[in-house]
Design a binder for these strands. Structure first.
Lengths: 258, 258
DNA sequence: GAGGGCGTTCGATACTGTCGAACGGCTTGT
DNA sequence: ACAAGCCGTTCGACAGTATCGAACGCCCTC
């Protein structure tokens, strides 16, 4: 279980439901939120008014949207820990050198989260997936992280989410999965061979602190048709591995000087 | 006034106070929040527990932190409208070509907000200011935007925040300010000559929709000692102006195709 | 081993969040 | 032009609960 609040505050829950609704809808009218959440019209109205008064919500005509206030809160969250500030420059380099979609991930609430995602040579980049969650057992970043984390992290993940099957390649057996982590530990590399989505492959390498515990991972992802042979297993693998090393080193070094 | 909720929800206000406190502190224990907000210990505890249960807050030892959930909400907010997705690649180019700190701003709640901020050639970048607010009357981006916005935007800003003096260069007179906007309109360029902070200069150019209304602005900022003469008034000015043009054009073009 | 600081739990009370109904503005359709 | 919906907003009443203070228990310090 994720965490059980003894005295959960009801109005907080409705507030968060509204935020979730707005997130999924990308914005909408009061009635849209009512339909999505089942909360009464006047209640939704009161919450949104309060949020707007405090600058967290924007109203444009009769449409409500999440405000840029959340951008700030998100930045604060992202800059907790050194992973993003040290990882972003290296991720950019990897993206420029390989031309592939490059990801920076960490773990929160027993799931993988993208801290940063970038791709070079794109006129218009798709809307970033920063903050999106993904499962740990079927992603390269997730496996890279799990391989260098206490087993309790995997326990907790399995407990909450289970080893869900997404494709025929998804590893759903705990023992088999733990064995695969062994190779990850040896090579400091984790693969995702279409285990989450058919046609999608990844390579990841863990970012470690001075005690060899994973802070996160860096990966590149792309089409299975392109991610094959030497390019996949050597070129890209080396790129993420060396980037991960640089990031790990810089983080460790920065923490030594105080 | 920003907006007056008729029936503001008290517990929402306390929730938001707690979030604000965590944002400013960057994280902290319950007692820290109590000291900062004046809310009772058990109340803070209950709210934080609820937020944690819902995945919005992380607890590490006895420290509470804003969760990466807010990163997602922030991304949704940032990707409302085309400004970020079209502006980011160009901002990156400007940063790479000039080597200067490059900003992408828009307006929300009658204040300027950084959507994006980047600087090349930095091993470790300072923690990003995305989502931070700034005044409209003493920033290059703010003036660029105001010059191509209905006067009501300036009215509202002055109403809420006033033309606060920050340095000796700050324009605090409404008439004088409006005149300065005239030149901005003619040249499609706005300057900030240490009007917000002594030693800090900016150049900005507005990003316009097809009706010549400002969606936002792009700017570079740097030390007054470096931002002088031809480099400042020609090289940098042209860089932001042409970037702004490209972004405006791409946005307009994308909206024509449907 | 005592003291203090802090997180958590618990119980009572006054408050207020929630709901449904009703009003009023805006658009749609005839 | 008028009627009929649709939707946002307001209002009043009730039940539910957010808030508070006190008490418990943990951990660290002295």
């Amino acid at each position: 279980m994720p965490h059980k609040a003894k005295n959960p505050i009801n109005s907080d829950l409705t507030l968060l439901k509204i935020l979730n609704g707005l997130e999924e809808l990308g914005g909408g009218r009061i009635q849209d939120i009512v339909n999505k959440t089942g909360i009464t019209k006047s209640t939704v109205h009161n919450h949104l008014s309060t949020l707007r008064q405090q600058g967290f919500i924007v109203k444009d005509g009769d449409q409500y949207y999440l405000g840029l206030r959340f951008l700030r809160l998100g930045e604060v969250a992202r800059n907790r820990g050194p992973l993003f500030s040290f990882g972003r420059p290296e991720a950019d380099k990897v993206a420029n050198e390989t031309g592939e979609l490059t990801n920076l991930s960490t773990v929160e609430h027993a799931r993988g989260v993208y801290l940063y995602r970038t791709q070079s040579e794109q006129e218009v980049r798709f809307s970033t997936a920063a903050g999106e969650y993904h499962d740990l057992h079927c992603s390269a970043t997730g496996k890279a992280i799990l391989a260098f984390s206490p087993e309790s992290v995997l326990d907790k993940f399995e407990d909450i989410h289970g080893l869900t099957r997404y494709t025929e390649n998804t590893i759903t057996n705990r023992e088999e999965f733990e064995e695969s982590l062994e190779t990850v530990r040896e090579r400091q590399l984790a693969l995702d061979l279409e285990e989450y989505e058919k046609g999608l492959r990844c390579v990841a390498s863990p970012i470690l602190d001075k005690d060899d515990r994973a802070l996160g991972a860096i990966s590149v992802s792309g089409p299975a048709m392109k991610f094959t042979g030497e390019y996949y297993r050597e070129t890209l693998a080396e790129a993420v591995k060396s980037a991960a090393n640089v990031i790990s080193l810089n983080i460790t070094r920065s923490e030594e000087t105080y």
